[in-house]
């Protein structure tokens, strides 16, 4: 099987986020970069498919040069090759602009299946997978917590509020990964894997290499724009329920506070 994973590099989930001087971007100097956790699940799922059916796993990412490191990590996990699209014309693109670039890359690679995260834990845009599917005119199966594929159809289980369902599609299709670490348990890169990854092919492309021009996917094409960032409102300082009280006293006081002050129970 020819498998493509769309991978985004995001700040480590431990990162403290600070707003930069321009008021609309974040300070990046102290940030440690990781593979978006959901994309790591996608790499894991792709490698399991490859183990079952053979084939190749290609990692595709748009981003600056630092993303090479994350692609190499995915290659060290076992993926076969990488494609980085690094073009300054895309710096102010919106999600749809990037989706067009990713869709063009997918078209060039002509895979049986595309796996991606359901959201990237940076801007939480939560949209590029379905957008890529729409642009390709392919079905997509969202929020996968399991994935079965026989080479011609793909079947996933996904949650909906209040339950779950099983959804199936013929290939080619896009699947976005849901679930959590407990579900996908992504593998670590092994030492031999890291050695091998250094020699695996990693193409760096510009827009023109994908037959795209900035007018259709660059900043001029952006329909939506982040205009400002702000920190969340400080929470009012809370209080510790009186430490002198015994357990029952504390329980009574908490019930009273929730009832009379907060009015939430």
């Amino acid at each position: 099987m020819n498998i493509v994973v769309l991978l985004k590099q995001t700040p480590d989930t431990e990162s403290v986020i600070r707003i930069a001087g321009d008021g609309r971007s974040i300070e990046t100097q102290d940030i440690k970069w990781i593979i978006n956790p959901y994309d790591e699940f996608a790499v894991e799922a792709a490698l399991r498919l490859k183990e079952q059916h053979g084939g190749t796993v290609t990692i595709v990412s748009w981003g600056p040069q630092r993303v090479v490191e994350s692609i190499r990590t995915a290659l060290a996990m076992g993926a076969d090759k990488g494609m980085l699209i690094d073009d300054e014309a895309l710096e102010e693109s919106d999600s749809l602009g990037i989706a067009k670039v990713l869709a063009a890359a997918v078209q060039e690679l002509n895979p049986d299946i595309v796996l991606c995260g359901h959201r990237a834990v940076d801007y939480d845009h939560n949209q590029r997978g379905p957008m890529v599917a729409e642009l390709l005119g392919w079905p997509h199966l969202p929020l996968a917590v399991s994935l079965e594929c026989d080479g011609t159809t793909v079947k996933i289980e996904r949650p909906v509020e209040g339950g779950k369902m099983v959804v199936e599609s013929s290939l080619p299709a896009v699947v976005t990964m849901g679930g959590s670490h407990a579900v996908w348990n992504p593998r670590y890169a092994s030492l031999p894997g890291i050695m091998k990854a250094r020699k695996k092919p990693l193409d760096v492309k510009k827009l023109a290499d994908l037959g795209l021009n900035p007018e259709e996917c660059g900043s001029g094409a952006a329909k939506i724009r982040l205009v400002s960032l702000e920190m969340p409102p400080e929470r009012k300082p809370g209080r510790i329920i009186n430490g002198d009280l015994d357990t029952e006293g504390k329980a009574k006081e908490l019930v009273r506070a929730l009832r009379e002050e907060a009015k939430v129970i």
Partner: peptide, 23 residues
């Protein structure tokens, strides 16, 4: 119209605006 969304898992909030004429 402007829309506000939590980013980075709510570690900060962003305001978004649309290009003229965009839905």
């Amino acid at each position: 119209i402007k829309a506000k969304r939590p980013l980075f898992g709510g570690k900060c909030l962003g305001w978004y605006e649309w290009a003229d004429g965009a839905l």
